[in-house]
Amino acid sequence: MKRLLDGGIRFYLVLVLVFLYLPILVMALFAFNKSPLYALPFEFDLVWFRALAENDKLLKAGLNSLLIALANTVIATSFGTMAAVAFGRYAFRGKTLLQALLFPPIAIPWLVIGTAMLVFFFWTARAMGVPGMARGLHAILLGHVALSLPYVIFVVGARLNDYPKVLEEAAATLGATPWQVFRRVSVPILAPGVVAAALFAFAVSFDQFVISYFLAPPGVTTLPVEIYTSIRKGFTPEINAISTIIIAVSMGLMLIVARFYRFGGERSGNE
């Protein structure tokens, strides 16, 4: 009976994972298939990756995506970490309200946020007398930062809640100056949370489509936007190739995140 149950549970979980991974696997498979018409039988070839290497538009979009994601990672992680420390370590008026206000943006559909940002940027740019400034990489970056900040604050905040303030106090009684406390105790203990948050911020930005699409002026694109545009024109396995690269990178990042930061209750740093 027990064995039957075990078998059933395992079968069910395998099914769940198949459901998750099958489309991705099929897509990746066709990136390596020679036929431009997605025809079988499978014939291994790197032709689509070679085509990709010559596709300036996609590469340029990829570079934009990378730059924005990196800038977003630095900005969102720095400000988000500071905000998390402020929330976690200081008492101030209106803290509960401010903290509660972090949640809603995560629940608002990106389409709505994207529209709101577009309208807002148009309005400010016009008010400042530079209507051309409404869209562009800078606007996309601002949008991404706004989007990833709550995630960073949550991830770092969770880590902060996980370790008690008393460690910092203990360090102080042992003669550590505030700077030494920060350097030798707070930073090392917070680091896994900050790294996880940074990877999160990178992923949020790199995968972001809606906001980038809304805020990109004609002629400037990011990778997801460019992929979307190409697909509308009729797609080739080149898209599979770039998607496979993106997925490999994203999943690699998430595996690192998982390594640094175990989701759900359990404390990291127990190893």
Binding site: Y163, E169, A170, G175, R184, P188, I189, G269
Partner: peptide
Amino acid sequence: HQRNIGMVFQNYALFPHMSVAENVAF
């Protein structure tokens, strides 16, 4: 940090990222 006072906390407050020797050496 300048009072030179030793304190032992209820849940010990040992630094989790340091070894026993590093904790004591801190």
